[in-house]
Amino acid sequence: MQFFTSGFFWFIEGIFLCLIIIGLKYWTEERNIPMPFWKWLVILIWILYSGFTIAFIGTCLGENEPAAALKGGMLFSLIAIVSAYGLSRLLGFFRLTRHQPK
């Protein structure tokens, strides 16, 4: 058992996830973007999906399956990028004016 497959690793990943969400919260507040519950849910799903994509590529490389890493990585990354663009429009991330904090 190595650090990266241990429970402690997931504890740290959890902290990172919290920080991502807090950072995103401030970022959306600055831009006056309303963030109802469903938007957070969608974002969380996207983050998990992207995490899956990265872990998939890493796992395939670790298994010495470069073809799977490349093909699967390209497929899943493309879906992640296209869905990120679609979601940013759906969630209104780049539409509203930036709100200057006092």
Binding site: T5, F16, I20, G51, A55, I57, G58, T59, G62, N64
Partner: peptide, 16 residues
């Protein structure tokens, strides 16, 4: 860092 960690986690999970 979280993404990088997941990448390394995956690598370990595949190789371990």
């Amino acid at each position: 860092m979280g993404s990088a960690g997941l990448g390394v986690f995956g690598y370990q999970a595949g190789k371990d």
